[in-house]
Design a protein around this nucleic acid. Structure first.
Length: 342
DNA sequence: AAAGCTAGCAACCGCGGTCTG
DNA sequence: GCAGACCGCGGTTGCTAGCTT
């Protein structure tokens, strides 16, 4: 026998989410954490299917999501990663943890794809927009180089993690953090850390929301508009509540909900400890994030730094594109095989 | 000023892999 | 081991705001 059905498909609401629905969802996740989506509609009274709830959370309400214009660096990374990984947006998004796969996908389709088409040469010639079967050996070679480089980077990150763990480090600065990469056995801790930090931001979001809800003189209509606007652009709520994704390391926990109880405070302490050593899981080439492990709260994968550095290093890219072997590290596993799962 | 067009983005849909009973 | 639900992903659609005519 299978499981019972997650939800009744009849009478479910579709279309844009209302602020009330968002609050209901955020409140529930604040209490129970993300995951177990099938129970969300039943327990919140939302007339939405579990899928819709998950989507709303991961693409929109999840803390740490950066919205708005993409930076030049982000753009470059997306272009390069798309060339390497194809339209595997989740995998690409894992290198841009502040962006959702949906966001990146939309950005690619609406901006970069056209840009690439206009250019007509250069990187575009290597992208997966073209049929791989037509790409010929040139593309294969090119992608092979990229994959080798990516594998190297992951290996570097893995080694850094081993080093970090072996010395049972108590990092006092961020240097080590950026080199350590977590293994899946750390995922539970990562999840905990992410969620706890998320709670902070959700609390702020809720507080900001409640503030907005309190009647302001001569602003009843504006409130409605603001509400609708925040429903569409909730990042502004977070921004208005003085959360900045850029200073998450120092401030992420400093403003933990003033009404938080003792257990939350204890969580906070644990989270502070955890976040010194636990970072994102290494993005895998398969692009499949461990189930229920969101990349939250403006964290940055430690391996990202050097990978990003390399990605944005046009010299390296040019050399690679030209077929030159640029400083590859020895590979611990044979080329062409699947990456080992750490 | 109004109608038509376009771009951007949120949300939906369908598929495949995974998990659970 | 199997059936069927859950979950996550990528593709697509539809709505809205802004721009053009």
């Amino acid at each position: 026998m299978g499981r019972p059905p997650c939800c009744d498909q009849n009478g479910l609401k579709k279309g844009p989410w209302t602020p009330e629905e968002d609050i209901a969802l955020v409140s529930y996740i604040q209490q129970h954490g993300p995951g177990n989506w099938r129970s969300v509609p039943a327990n919140t009274g939302l007339l939405r299917c579990s899928k819709s709830c998950r989507l709303r959370w991961t693409n929109y309400l999840r803390p740490g999501i950066k919205r708005g214009n993409f930076t030049v660096q982000e753009e470059k990374m997306i272009i390069h990663l798309q060339a390497l990984l194809g339209n595997r947006w989740a995998a690409i998004a894992s290198y841009l943890p502040q962006r959702t796969d949906n966001d990146i996908k939309n950005y690619w389709n609406s901006h970069l794809k056209k840009k690439q088409t206009k250019l007509g040469h250069g990187l575009n010639a290597q992208t997966h927009d073209q049929d791989d079967s037509k790409g010929g050996t040139q593309t294969s070679i090119y992608r092979g180089q990229w994959e080798r480089r990516l594998q190297t980077d992951i290996h570097t990150a893995k080694q850094a993690l081993c080093n970090a763990l072996s010395v049972n480090s108590k990092p006092t600065n961020g240097a080590l953090d950026h080199k350590a990469s977590p293994a899946p056995y750390q995922v539970a801790s990562t999840l905990f850390g992410n969620y706890a930090s998320s709670t902070n931001n959700i609390s702020r979001l809720l507080q900001a929301w409640m503030k907005k809800r309190t009647p302001q003189p001569n602003s009843s209509e504006n409130d409605l508009r603001t509400t609708a606007h925040h429903a569409r652009y909730p990042e502004n709520i977070i921004a208005n509540s003085s959360y900045s994704s850029d200073d998450h390391n120092s401030n992420m926990f400093s403003g933990f909900s003033s009404s938080s109880d003792a257990s939350q405070s204890m969580e906070l302490q644990n989270v502070k400890t955890l976040t010194h050593t636990h970072q994102h899981p290494s993005p895998s080439l398969r692009g499949v994030r461990p189930a229920g492990v969101p990349y939250g709260a403006a964290e940055e994968p430690p391996a990202l730094k050097c990978f990003e550095k390399w990605l944005l290093d046009d010299g390296g890219l040019a050399a690679t594109a030209a077929g030159l072997d640029v400083d590859f590290m020895p590979m611990p596993w044979p080329l062409g095989e699947d990456l080992p799962r750490f």
